[in-house]
Amino acid sequence: MSSEGFSIPIIHNSISIMTPFLLAAIGGLMTELSGMLNIALEGLILIGAFFSVIFAAATGSLLLGILLGILMTILVSWVFGAITIYLKANVFITGLATNLLASGLTAVLSFHIFGTKGVLMFEELPPLPSLNVPPLHKIPVLGDIFFGHNVFVYMSWIIVVIAWFAIYRTPFGFRLRGTGSNPKAMIAIGLNPQNYQMLGILISGFTCGLAGAVLTLNLGAYVPHISSGRGWIALVVIYLGGKTPFGILGAAFVFGLAESFSNYAQGFIDIPADFILAFPYIITAAAMVIMSIVQNRNED
């Protein structure tokens, strides 16, 4: 196998793999900037994954499935947000509760509706449309890497750009960051910081709904706990990306690459599969350590 033939598919795949991380992290960034740690990302992704695929199967429409799935996720994030922000519950407890609720709710509904807590296959679902621009696709290397992905991939990039503009170039972004930095500054000028925190959470509901939809609709099936830690890694991605949209894009790519590599490596590298599958998580730990060292250096 030539080195090019080996590395291009890995990079191509990593771009698909990074999409749910990226989406969840961008939403989580909005919550983070408003001054709250969103540990409910994991549960919200799961909600999005479950409802988008069953609604898509029930309605026979991918678009309706996605929309209703996102709507359900926003609804759950609203409950999480309302209890945390307006009823002033501890965000760690409510966040963990949201994650537990998501895994319980999906299992119960799955058993109640489909009679199984296991994998749900929806073979009649159409595949996600992918973007192929024939002339561009022929560009060597870049064409292979950047084209031929499903539409969610490109949507997530557009969302990164929109997020950047929203954060740095709109009054909303200024107020959101103002809330995170000094809520009293907001109160002093008559703005309610709680509303901006709520918006931060609702946006994370939206992007996690999308992130969940990517997982299940790409597969045409629902696997229990399909989010499998992506929400937690998305949290790391937010910090690793320096709490900026483009930083997050870069950090998400690193994780995509790590997971993509571990998928490939299982086939032919002679080390235990468990260890290879742990690779993305080792990267997570290493990245956090390196980042904290670098930060300390800079302060000195």
Binding site: F174, G178, A185, I189, G190, L191
Partner: peptide
């Protein structure tokens, strides 16, 4: 002070009435 440290003077002044 009810100001946002990361923002400029101008950004703080207009916050809420941008």
């Amino acid at each position: 002070s009810r100001l946002v440290n990361e923002f400029t003077v101008a950004q703080n002044v207009v916050l809420g009435a941008e």
